[in-house]
């Protein structure tokens, strides 16, 4: 019931959306595709959900070929597209009922699967879907994608445009669904969500940069990372860019993350340089790398 992707390539006109992508998702795994907009995540989802045909390569979902057995796949996957794609003029309940009916089931039959999510939107069940908040919409869309008890669940950026609290809830729900033997492929541009997946593929420009468990990706980060802060952020960015020792420097929250070309680089070296540039309130601390650091390093 897993997913297998072998040497998939897809181009639109001259743009190469996917370039020789291969990976496996094990049955029951929560697998994340992490990457910025334009990385090719949506194209990959559409190929796996049988909506597009790849130019090259082959893929199977739950053992079925995405081109030849598309009818079988359409029966057993749940798909939540990146854009909110429910009927805005139908109420919450009508939407859910509609999707249950076209998959030949009823809300009652699979209620236990969606119960956790649905209880949160049930108070609004007579509200039109178009009038829900962003988080509510996503919960409804997930309920609709789950209503027929799919074997494989495809979630294309389910948390984009959702507030942090709802995002956290959403991921808790996904974790619980995983317990019910559903294979989940999820994409997100938020690096902090990557740590919640079993395994992730870091994607950019239609290619996979690295594929591993999130912890392994962090552990394989090759350099020491320093977080840097001074009174003048803008001048700090300029100065770090021209520093001869700099390997990389990019903003990370209220800090700058800095790596050096030298392996035995010390915080004092940087403090000395910044003092020379007349910075005040200098703060340089060694810190743990994150998925985002790995991504920045890999996509350099």
């Amino acid at each position: 019931m897993g997913i297998s992707v072998k040497h998939i390539s897809k181009s639109y006109d001259k743009v190469r959306a996917l370039d020789d992508i291969s990976f496996e998702v094990k049955p029951g795994e929560l697998f994340g595709l992490i990457g910025p907009d334009g990385a090719g995540k949506t194209t990959l989802f559409r190929i796996l959900t049988t909506l597009l045909i790849a130019d090259k390569g082959e893929a199977t979902v739950a053992g079925y070929d995405v081109v030849n057995d598309y009818k079988a796949i359409r029966n057993l996957v749940g798909y939540m597209p990146g854009r909110f794609s429910l009927y805005q003029d139908l109420t919450v309940e009508e939407n859910l009922n509609f999707f249950a009916t076209i998959f030949g089931t009823t809300i009652e039959e699979n209620y236990d699967l969606i119960k956790d999510i649905y209880v949160q939107i049930e108070p609004f069940k007579n509200r039109r879907a178009g009038k829900l908040s962003g988080g509510m919409k996503q919960k409804l869309a997930l309920s609709c994608a789950l209503i027929h008890k799919p074997k494989v669940l495809f979630l294309d950026e389910p948390t984009t445009g959702v507030d942090p609290v709802s995002r956290k809830e959403f991921w808790e729900i996904l974790k619980r669904l995983q317990q019910k033997d559903i294979t989940i492929l999820v994409s997100t541009p938020y690096m902090d969500e990557a740590a919640l997946c079993d395994r992730i593929a870091l994607m950019t420009g239609g290619q996979i940069l690295q594929l591993s468990a999130p912890e392994a990706i962090i552990a394989s980060f090759p350099k020491k990372i320093f977080k840097v802060r001074t009174a003048e952020t803008y001048r700090l960015i300029q100065d770090l860019k021209v520093f001869t020792q700099t390997h990389s420097a990019y903003p990370f929250g209220e800090y700058m993350h800095f790596t050096s070309m030298e392996s035995d680089f010390k915080a004092e070296d940087l403090i000395r340089y910044l003092k020379g540039k007349k910075h005040k309130n200098i703060e340089v601390l060694e810190t743990e790398p994150t998925i985002e650091d790995s991504f920045m390093e890999l996509s350099k």
Binding site: L51, N75, P81, F103
Partner: peptide, 8 residues
């Protein structure tokens, strides 16, 4: 998109 990825 959703209608297509359904048994209809």
């Amino acid at each position: 998109e959703i209608l297509l990825v359904s048994p209809l």
